[in-house]
Design a binder for these strands. Structure first.
Lengths: 206, 206
DNA sequence: TCTTCTGGGTCATGGTCATTCCCATGGTTG
DNA sequence: CAACCATGGGAATGACCATGACCCAGAAGA
């Protein structure tokens, strides 16, 4: 069992299980609680009425989801669904007060946590200045590669994260591949020349 | 002197003055402190290397600025400049610990405050789904009109906030004006038909 | 093994909006 | 009042990228 700052929230609490694709919470609904991910990975995303979605984060075990709207006491700004099988602990207001009382330092950790969300969202806004290829380059550089140095991701997923179409992701990655900066494979991708990508990202627009 | 939740942060502290256009903090620099606005209004914005800027908020007296990056202990994600003459109180880490110790409820208020930032930024991301005209409509509806029912804003400012060019703002507002939904004047704008704007915003894309 | 599904490459087409002009007008300052 | 600057309106041009369509490849299940 993973232990971290948030474990006091989860200790001794019942967990609920979610199957892949199952909804955890829905955008625009009231936020009565937030969640601690005991295991599995989750997709948090904003969706449009037309069905397009924009992935904000893909949090894993040990992370919290849904705290921002919870503290804001406003409808959720994003939806969350399970990507893999998940175990979750839900935290509601009475429970949170209990834990804050017993572990005052948690409030500070929560401040830092929310500040991190602000940073992530700011990066999304910031990247609106960039054209599609640089958005993708930035995204690749921000990902932490697996132990073998490769990333597990589909073009669709990248597109939904940086806000461009699947087609464009294919085109740009094909281009990066031809230049020798990355090597692409089925549902995977390896960065070969980090520096070249960084240099490319740094070039100011003509 | 305005009094609110944050006044304990400012009480008895020296203020610093800023002239219109003067920089308060700069994107990508370290965040050693944050600020309480005693008077005046400030512009918080993200800027690109090419000089384009995207306005995030235009906070007034009684609000905080720069807390998110401060808690995150990372470089600032946005810059802030004074729009009008401003008085500011700066709060650094030792000072904050003092105040938190004396006013524990402030930490909770700060959580809600940061959660509000997440909401604002989420709205920015969310609006990327919308075409220019609806972005503008949404922005207009979100503004709180002055006592006479009019908004004080330039097309340039609206463009920088919603992320479209000045020209497009002019075109769209001209269109809204011809339809009788708003009336435009020099540096000002009045919403005549809120419902029509809301209806228009609600239409799903073809 | 055959089928089916999802992921991935590529093209032609078109829409949306930024850009770049140029000019009109309101406000401000001398 | 005159000169100046910031703001706003309009049109032509073109860049960028989404869309839809089609085909191929890899993976998974029957």
């Amino acid at each position: 069992m993973l232990r971290n700052i948030w474990t006091p929230l989860a200790d001794g609490q019942p967990t609920q299980h979610k199957e892949p694709g199952q909804l955890i919470y829905l955008q625009d609904t009231l936020a009565e609680c937030f969640y601690y991910i005991v295991s599995g990975t989750v997709k948090c995303f904003i969706s449009s009425p037309e069905g397009d979605e924009r992935i904000l984060t893909l949090p894993h075990a040990g992370e919290l989801i849904g705290e921002a709207s919870f503290f804001d006491r406003q409808p959720r700004v994003s939806s969350a669904v399970a990507v893999t099988k998940c175990e979750l602990v839900t935290v509601d207001r009475p429970r949170l007060e209990q834990v804050f009382a017993a572990h005052p330092s948690l409030a500070i950790a929560m401040l830092e946590n929310l500040a991190g969300r602000v940073r992530i969202l700011s990066a999304h806004v910031d990247s609106e200045f960039l054209p599609a290829d640089k958005r993708i380059a930035r995204h690749l550089l921000a990902q932490i590669p697996g132990p073998d140095g490769s990333l597990r991701c589909t073009h669709e997923e990248i597109g939904a994260t940086v806000g461009v179409s699947r087609v464009t992701v294919s085109r740009v990655l094909g281009d990066f591949d031809r230049r020798g900066w990355v090597s692409t494979g089925y549902k995977s991708l390896r960065i070969l020349d980090r520096l070249a990508l960084e240099r490319y990202l740094g070039e100011i627009q003509a």
